[in-house]
């Protein structure tokens, strides 16, 4: 990846901006300040490039920076006591992409509500669990890439991934009032 000129770096930004925006969106749970956060990611990347020795892909490096920026934003919002998830935020992006227009309105409403709950519960997970879930499922990174991005052993990544999914399932079940009461033997 040539970054010997400003024009080349602009190209790097253009090629990776969508990935950075959607990762930040999922990690922070809202579109608030997302443009500023994305700018910060790329400026940090530019400053770090002289030290980049090519041990991993540049995208893995970008993910690492994006996760750090998202975590800082998360901490800032917690300190300012602001709601961590903008549930009432417009979801036109979701609504506009109706994959199955033939489904009735009730089904679509139910799916939308489920989607919002997943988003809400995703933000309730720890920063590490949320990052790993997003990088693995949304960004389709491998365990090795996630381990490099987060500087963690692969076994730890697997554990957090499993725990994160389990917590999400349990909390969604609890929020929907589904009690699992296996009969005693």
């Amino acid at each position: 990846m040539p970054v010997s000129s400003d024009l080349s770096f602009e190209q790097v930004v253009r090629e990776n901006q969508a990935m950075v925006f959607r990762t930040l969106y999922r990690l922070t749970g809202s579109r608030e300040h997302i443009e500023d956060l994305a700018q910060e990611v790329f400026l940090r990347l530019y400053k770090a490039l002289p030290n980049f020795r090519g041990e991993s892909l540049v995208t893995t490096y970008i993910y690492r920076i994006a996760v750090n920026v998202a975590q800082n934003e998360w901490k800032r919002r917690k300190r300012s006591d602001r709601p961590l998830v903008s549930i009432s935020e417009e979801t036109s992006a979701w609504e506009d992409r109706l994959e199955h227009p033939e489904r009735n309105a009730e089904q679509q409403m139910e799916e939308r509500e489920f989607r919002l709950k997943v988003e809400e519960q995703l933000q309730e997970l720890s920063a590490v669990e949320r990052s790993i879930l997003v990088l693995y499922h949304q960004e389709e990174r491998s365990y090795e890439q996630i381990a490099t991005a987060l500087n963690m052993p692969i076994g730890t990544i697997r554990t957090h991934l499993h725990r994160g999914r389990k917590k999400l399932r349990e909390r969604l079940q609890a929020s929907e009032g589904r009690a699992l009461c296996p009969m005693s033997r």
Binding site: V13, Q17, R22, R26, I34, F42, A93, W94, Q138, E140
Partner: peptide
């Protein structure tokens, strides 16, 4: 979670140039 958010409208056209 795998469903990628559509953020096309959130990314300004001149974002890369501004950075």
């Amino acid at each position: 979670i795998e469903r990628q958010p559509d953020l096309a409208t959130s990314i300004p056209a001149d974002f890369a140039a501004r950075v």
